[in-house]
Amino acid sequence: MKRIIAAILLLALTASSGIAADLPKLRVGYVPEPAHGLYFLAKEKGYFKEEGVDVELFQFGSAAEGVAAVKAGKLDVGTFGTTAPLLFISKGSEFTFIGGMMIGGQAIIARPERLAELSGKDLKVYKGKKIGLVKLSTGDVIFRGALKKAGIDVKKDLTFVEFGSAAAVVEAVKKGAVDAGLVWPPHFSLAEKNHGLKVAHYISEFYPDYTCCRIFAHTAKVNSEPETYRRFLTALIRAYKFYKTNPEETVQVYTKALKIDEDIVRNETYVKKVADSNPDPLRKGILDFWQHILAAGYIPQDYPIDKHINTAIYKQALDSVIKKEPKDKIYQQMLTFYKKNN
């Protein structure tokens, strides 16, 4: 009996893998954040398969290891922040940005008794303060950019204390070793829930639509298989529409995939809307980000990053869904957003 069951299972597996085997494969790396959820939706709802691409998802705990896996050809797509791929490109890696996953998401946390002093609509409240952060994190780079835009001298007007992890930043804020700390989701939600800390500001209040995790791949693979990547991005565009129109099911999918508190997922994704998931490449945002890294002195020499950004494949993907549903409001909004940011 066991042999018969095994044989049936084998046949079933062979049949299903036979379908998948006909599709081009993409191995996709991501980090466990709710804002990376479009991958889970596209997988769960079957959009990848419907668009004709067989996607396998790999979760990474370290951006450095994830980018190294793309460089080594072990992954076909990477989603590991903006800084990490930019650092690799600056050192000669042939990567191309083809899309995006997360916009915004960074927050400044403080002890509750400091909240009145640090809140308000002006970044000048941080003058003279000691800010804990993870060096080269999106929050670090974008906060510096926001301060510069506000006319605040980052070298003279405030002090940055660098830590190795978001958890260490939270701990420093909790102990009062710093006045405030810059962290990303879900760390500030957890800091609020577990340690009673408060979010003083979301950086997007001062710097709207800044880039966080970007989707990138090996340039040679992008150039040789643009149709595969178009299908992949088309599936993500459809997942974006689902996320915008089906909040409750989306929360369930994210919670199941990430195994984190459902309330945190719901709050960050739909209530507080701390970050947006959006597959748009945000070319202008990447270029801005690069300039902030240079201005901070993290990289000593400029490099033409623009030639590592391909917006055409995303545009083709967007055009393909609009062609099928020309009156769809979500897709039309995506088109407007694309025109503004690329």
Binding site: V31, E33, G61, A63, G81, V134, K135, S137, L258
Partner: peptide
Amino acid sequence: CTPNCCPASA
């Protein structure tokens, strides 16, 4: 250094 953006596992 490339910043570690996430905990080692969800």
